[in-house]
Design a protein around this nucleic acid. Structure first.
Lengths: 284, 284
DNA sequence: AAGGTGGTCAATAATTTATGCTTCAATGGA
DNA sequence: TCCATTGAAGCATAAATTATTGACCACCTT
């Protein structure tokens, strides 16, 4: 795995100093060749031990190991920026749209790295189970509501009963009927909305399974989850970052959705029937 | 120059010990990663200083420098002789998620090809204009409402007044206050909902500008548009197609959004202010 | 054979990396 | 609110790795 992608994917849950190291490495990967851990530390005005600990926390044997890996990544031109791409004529990489696409691609990859397939499968299984024997509660506030709504619609097309709310009051009321076998899906980018935490806690008390979808940061909501889906997406431009976030999140959810569809002929049939029904309702 | 090539080229004029080092490095370049100069010396039964001298004689700063260079060479699969094939597993192209991503990428590209940059710019300009001097109406039904809602939220964060509805009745009523300088954004995947056509037609009569977002098919709604955004996304699997459609559509809209942000410092500032305000509302 | 040359190594100096330990700040619970 | 706990960061230092020095030896030249 490319160390640069890895660094980016973990960036979210790093401390301030660690994040500075991460950024420096990401931006000056080529310089690393001539930097000792001490020099790197000096360049950032931090202690050398912080640098070493940083590398170890990322899973490298130590600083030289990271350095070596980064060297490989650069040689592969695998800066995480351009995963493949034969860079022929008409390379989309330099148009605005192409650039955006690439950034999205990075975010998606970073997100994939921090959500192992088991987790995705577990989420799909939990939702599938709840769809068969219980209810799926979905909530998100503000922008998060968009994602929640989207996913709720998808699930309902599969014949999975979903209770979707976009305010805490209603959701609180609804949750009181939850029980074992039910699933609560909480969307919260930053994961620190007290009301959502409260609802999640309450839901757990009622023996329901809580699945959270948040940024890859240390946040209170996450800690309440039975399963936590994490999103990694960064850009210094504040108008780009939400686009990346949405894209990575969407891809993550799409993965769950596909799992729910594949190998379940009944749901598949349900989906077809629903699509057809909707079609005929809108057409005439 | 690749260190491995260099080593081979100099091999002939080396002393016996140096030649043994050279051969070892050439044959076990991958092992070098975990070898210190001392370990390498032990492996060959020679002294550590010989190893260091060897590297320096070749023009490297020292042993770590050689090691780093060899690492790069391996990563490049540039071992000087046959393409060794180091790229083993890990290619995302064949995992389910990676496959989905590729399909999305294709849909996005197809969509980009049928929406020339002028169109995108025109849409951004029209919306920007309306945001300054008028109103932006947005409507979509069913799944299309999700996209409409999403975009409406984005615009409002930029300080662009948007009127978003998800039923035809309300939108019909709202539209009656539209006038020149206003813009109507209609989301409709298949573009053949009579009510939406009617609203669009009415909107045009009131001298508003109609922008449609539909599939790249011949559909009645499109023909009513001043500017038409088109989405191309296909897959024989009915549970994949919507994902592609959404992704391509999203990317298209993201392009518009980025244009609206870039080069408009006022909007940019507005966005920042709004984000901050929202943040502070959710946090405490 | 004496003197020179190049190569190797052991010893050690210099540098770089890794690890304890301490302090401090943030967090959660009684 | 206060205290215990946790974790991050730095300092000091141990450990390791790397680089240099100088001694020794083999071989070559004259």
């Amino acid at each position: 795995m490319s160390p640069l992608v890895k660094i980016r994917s973990e960036r979210d849950q790093m401390s301030a100093v660690e994040r500075r190291i991460a950024d420096f490495v990401l931006e000056n990967a080529q310089l690393l060749r001539d930097y000792s851990s001490q020099q790197l530390a000096n360049a950032l005005g931090i202690s050398q031990s912080s640098v070493v600990k940083f590398t170890q926390k990322l899973g490298f044997k130590g600083y030289p190991d990271l350095k070596y890996s980064v060297g490989e990544a650069i040689a592969r031109a695998d800066n995480g920026d351009a995963p493949e791409e034969a860079t022929a004529a008409g390379d989309p990489g330099d148009t605005p749209a192409g650039q955006l696409w690439r950034r999205k691609s990075e975010a998606e990859e970073a997100t994939r790295l921090i959500n192992p397939p088991e987790t995705i499968r577990a989420v799909a299984a939990a939702i599938g189970q709840a769809g068969r024997a219980g209810k799926v509660f979905i909530i998100g506030l503000g922008e998060d509501d968009i994602y929640a709504r989207n996913f709720a619609l998808r699930l309902s097309l599969l014949g999975i009963l979903t209770v979707h709310n976009f305010d805490t009051a209603r959701m609180t009321a609804n949750v009181s009927v939850a029980g074992p076998g039910d699933v609560l899906l909480v969307f919260s980018e930053h994961g620190n909305h007290p009301a959502l935490c409260k609802i999640s806690r309450y839901f757990r008390e009622r023996r329901g399974q809580v699945i959270t979808v948040t940024r890859h940061t240390a946040n209170p909501l996450r800690t309440l989850a039975d399963i936590a889906l994490l999103v990694s997406a960064h850009d210094e431009r504040p108008y780009i970052q939400p686009l990346l976030y949405q894209s990575a999140l969407q891809h993550l959810l799409d993965g769950v959705f596909v799992l729910l569809c594949e190998g379940h002929d009944d749901r598949h049939a349900q989906l077809l029937a629903n699509l057809e029904r909707i079609q005929s309702m809108l057409e005439p």
